[in-house]
Design a protein around this nucleic acid. Structure first.
Lengths: 158, 158
DNA sequence: CTAAAGAAGTTGAATTCTGAACCAATGGAT
DNA sequence: ATCCATTGGTTCAGAATTCAACTTCTTTAG
């Protein structure tokens, strides 16, 4: 199973699965980005909007939002500043913790969300979901969920 | 199946599969990047090295390399410039087409590759492959390969 | 109560990435 | 031969990202 130097290299099946995952993840992000461009949004913009839209009072603490979107506090801070200048979002103080800030969806942000979401979903369907089929979807989830868990716990630690 | 505004939203299974894919792809890239850091390489550096290592004469045309690694010519050009200054790679003219350039692995690049590859493979195993199991791997490939094809052809066109 | 440690966010500089404009060489057409 | 559309690659400017330093507030421990 191992070559003489002791490394457990990937076999052909492993290799092609790994490359498929890699390729899909990059190509897909690219395609989604392209499909959002006409609306003047990036993937990152959109994900922020989704998270805020689904949250109580259309607001989230910066830290939680950073964690939910898997980006650094710094990156999120810049991102929110940009979105503030485009009027999709505003910052608001948190009185229970005076260090804290909320990112809050503006009316304009909410409107944008309602307009763009259907197109985005269509895009996700066209380029991903609808190509999988029901059993493909469940197979995918079954395979990937444990990996996601592993990586999330690893993240907390590291 | 559709809500009143005509949008075919994702159901729960679809949603969770989609999020799993999204999360895994981001978390995994992050983890691999971390595991490469001790060797002073980024994921992008590593992928260039792999491609050149596996190529005839340890060299590839810039265009082909860009296509193989799914990045723009511009980005690759910058990337190679950086790797040239760190001595992993060098540019070399192509006499069959005087516009063309090869990116060529240096001895140092090859050495680096041989040293780092085992660690990288271990990392890919630990955080991905070994969590899937044989059937998970094949299920994943079965699901993702058509998606990859779809996206690649879409890329050529767009 | 106070000091130290930790959490929430921001900032700024350095790096990387993107997209358009650009130059040079090639491959067909006519 | 000569145009002209393409291809291969770089460059520049602007945007996004990272990384470390920093401020402010909160929590914990003594």
């Amino acid at each position: 199973m191992e070559t003489e130097n002791g490394t457990n290299w990937l076999n052909d099946e492993e290799q092609r699965a790994w490359r498929a995952h890699l390729d899909v993840s990059r190509l897909l992000m690219h395609q989604l980005e392209r499909d959002l461009q006409p609306f003047g949004l990036t993937n990152n913009d959109y994900e922020i909007l989704v998270n805020l839209s689904e949250s109580e009072d259309h607001r989230m603490r910066m830290s939680d939002l950073a964690a939910a979107t898997l980006q650094s506090k710094s990156r999120l801070s810049h991102q929110i500043t940009r979105m503030e200048t485009t009027g999709l979002v505003r910052r608001e103080n948190c009185e229970s913790d005076r260090r804290g800030l909320y990112a809050v969806l503006t009316d304009r942000g909410w409107e944008t969300m309602r307009e763009v979401a259907p197109h985005h979903v269509a895009s996700v369907r066209q380029h991903f979901i609808d190509l999988l089929g029901t059993q493909g979807i469940n197979a995918l989830y079954g395979s990937l969920a444990p990996v996601a868990d592993h990586l999330r716990t690893r993240r907390k630690i590291g």
